[in-house]
Design a protein around this nucleic acid. Structure first.
Length: 209
DNA sequence: GGGACGATCGAT
DNA sequence: TCGATCGTCCCC
């Protein structure tokens, strides 16, 4: 992981995060996968962003710091979502991680998701179940055991980290479109700041077209 | 102190 | 399409 990576402009960082891996090492084991879907939230000028108009509270504080930290927040009183803080210090921007293609600790992820009753060691999980492990921002957090306890974590460092382990994804493999769940954001609801790997079956909606 | 509202998910 | 469920934020 080159040090400058998280300093990329937010929209570029969002694209470049696709294809990298998010991993979480815990006493229960290693879990994680390739990032296949993200959304950019571009700071004070973005009506969909928590930091719109520079709103600075205890919740959004980490976005005002250096890039590469974890911004974890709770939604709907029961789910958590994980963002990578982006933008230079003072620019409160972030990239929401929306879906993973599981690569590590699939069984552990299934247990955290409540999708298996018993520890079925070595047993293959169905493709359908694997697609349901982390195909959504809250599913991703549940599958990896991510909670507000990880708020502010430096995502270059174990136990919760992002790493490059293959060549960058070519631009033609990246699709984009409107972000999900921001109908309150006026015209910004149309801005194509959701990015995903074209055709990847692990994205959160419509199987990535 | 009080109330409205979610960057969601899963069952119907 | 709808309900769960509660922290955050803004207003009184």
């Amino acid at each position: 992981m080159e040090p400058a990576f998280f300093h990329l402009p937010t929209l570029e960082l969002a694209r470049r995060l696709l294809g990298t891996r998010l991993l979480h090492a815990t006493p229960a084991g290693l879990s994680g996968g390739r990032i296949v879907e993200v959304e950019a939230y571009v700071g004070p000028g973005d009506p969909a962003a928590h930091s719109y108009r520079g709103r600075r509270t205890a919740r959004t504080e980490v976005m005002f710091g250096p890039p590469g930290r974890a911004y974890v927040f709770q939604v709907y009183g029961m789910h958590f979502c994980l963002n990578v803080v982006s933008g230079q210090a003072g620019n409160p921007e972030a990239v929401l991680l929306r879906a993973l293609e599981p690569t590590d600790g699939l069984e552990l992820m299934a247990r955290r998701r409540g999708l298996v009753q018993e520890v079925a060691g070595g047993q293959d999980l169905s493709p359908r179940l694997v697609r349901n492990l982390a195909s959504g921002p809250a599913k991703l957090c549940q599958a990896l055991g991510i909670t507000p306890a990880q708020y502010g974590w430096d995502l270059r460092l174990s136990p919760l980290f992002i790493c490059h382990d293959r060549d960058p994804v070519p631009d033609e493999a990246v699709a984009s479109g409107p972000r999900i769940g921001i109908d309150y954001a006026g015209e910004a609801r149309e801005w194509p700041w959701r990015f995903w790997l074209w055709g990847n079956p692990h994205v959160s909606r419509s199987r990535g077209e």
